[in-house]
Amino acid sequence: MDFSWMAWTWPTATFFGVILALLCGMAVWEYRVPGGSPRVGILRFETTRGDRLFISLLGSAFINLAWLGLVGPELWWSLALSVVYAVCVFRFV
């Protein structure tokens, strides 16, 4: 099969690989600790760990977009900021 129309590049393949790895990790986590660990955090409503991953990914996308628009195309610092943000989400949300 010819997938050249999908125009794959190494950076985008790595991006999707990381997303896939995160989803697999979440599946293993759910298998080990079923139920999604629901709790009420600083947002004052119940979230499961799936919700927390979604909030982390969505927030990270906006952090990187904001960095790109306001600072510039070097995104390593915004990536680090996104990791810190994701850790905070998993810890406090």
Binding site: W5, A7, T9, P11, T12, F16
Partner: peptide, 24 residues
């Protein structure tokens, strides 16, 4: 969606030829 992500970092003039554009 994956294809759109791939296209968003490249430029093309057709014929399945793509050129890296990064975050431009």
């Amino acid at each position: 969606l994956m294809t759109v992500v791939n296209y968003s970092v490249q430029d093309t003039f057709g014929n399945n030829q793509f050129f890296w554009a990064g975050l431009d």
